[in-house]
């Protein structure tokens, strides 16, 4: 459905994207992950046909997104990373304008989306909060029922409740066979929606992984408080990776080896266990470090 082949674009500064290749099947939700400045937005600009690749191509529905700029947009819904609207419009007049530009006649989907995201469309856009603008952007990306939806950091600015609603919306569309490309920093969002994800760094795709594989790469930190500090002293001599130890308080890093962790902690009376999940960023950092070390 969406094919990125050997996409290369070099900027004068020497940065850019190099030989990006991946493809997304129909009905798949694909995550696009990487730190800031890694080349996510540049890749999305090529997918949207805003930039001309030096070499390689992007095809959606077998149509080259640079050469067939107009035609290919019929199949695409797009939420920009930084939303900018035309000045002097209200949410409603903007959506009306977009509906007209997209040539959509049926407004039922749009009304349903507005209902779901719960916002007042008659507010002037310049008076909207970031989250509200994001909602208008989401409606604009979904309302014409496109086959491929490209979302650049879709949940930024949304409160947790709306993030949940958004994830549900993505899953529903996915069930209808829609294809997604989604760049994100939020691991729960990627975890719950994506089938696969590409990791990009310094303009190069370093891995395209199944989401379950990524999950198992995720390292979790547990803070265990033992009833007796003598138990804590014994605990740190187990095979587990200990991050820090202070009195009866131990911080331990777990990556997949949950059984061992349960077994070791089960030997002693425990007062409290708290979990610190690693952010996606930290998962990457781990991944980079390891892939660089193995070179």
């Amino acid at each position: 459905m969406l094919e990125v082949q050997n996409l290369t674009k070099k900027f004068k500064s020497g940065k850019g994207i190099f030989n990006i290749t991946f493809s997304i099947k129909r009905g798949e939700v694909f995550g696009f992950l990487g730190p800031n400045g890694a080349g996510k937005s540049t890749t999305i600009r090529h997918i949207m046909g805003f930039m001309k690749p030096d070499t390689g191509y992007v095809k959606i529905n077998e149509l080259d997104t640079w050469k067939k700029q107009g035609e290919v947009k019929k199949y695409i819904g797009y939420l920009p990373g930084e939303i900018a609207f035309i000045e002097g419009m209200t949410g409603k007049s903007f959506l009306d304008f977009m509906t007209e530009m997209q040539g959509v006649k049926d407004l039922s989907k749009r009304n349903e989306l507005i209902e779901r995201l719960q916002f007042d469309v008659n507010t002037p856009i310049r008076k909207m909060s970031k989250g509200m603008k994001q909602k208008v952007g989401i409606v604009a990306a979904f309302m014409h029922d496109p086959e491929v939806i490209i979302l650049d950091e879709p949940t930024s600015g949304l409160d947790p409740l709306m993030q949940k609603v958004f994830i549900e919306m993505v899953l529903e569309e996915k069930a209808k066979g829609k294809t997604f490309l989604m760049s994100s920093h939020s691991f729960p969002e990627i975890e719950r929606t994506c089938d696969r994800a590409a990791i990009i760094k310094d303009g190069v795709v370093i891995a395209v992984k199944d989401i379950h594989e990524l999950q198992s790469m995720q390292r979790k930190l547990f803070e265990v408080i033992f009833k007796n500090s003598s138990d804590a002293n014994k605990f740190i001599h187990s095979n587990l990776q200990i991050e820090s130890h202070e009195g009866n308080r131990v911080r331990v890093a777990i990556q997949g080896n949950y059984d061992q962790f349960i077994e070791e902690t089960g030997k002693y009376p425990v007062q409290n266990i708290a979990i610190y999940t690693q952010s996606l960023e930290e998962v990457f950092m781990n991944y980079y470090d390891r892939s660089e070390a193995s070179r």
């Binding site: 949207m48 046909g49 805003f50 700029q69 107009g70 035609e71 947009k73 019929k74 695409i76 819904g77 797009y78 920009p80 930084e82 939303i83 900018a84 609207f85 035309i86 000045e87 977009m98 530009m101 997209q102 040539g103 604009a140």
Partner: peptide, 20 residues
């Protein structure tokens, strides 16, 4: 101005061409 602000992105998201 539309390019600088970014709102040009929305115009080009629709099935129209840049030439148009």
């Amino acid at each position: 101005k539309l390019v600088d602000q970014g709102s040009m992105a929305y115009l080009l998201t629709t099935p129209t061409t840049r030439g148009k």
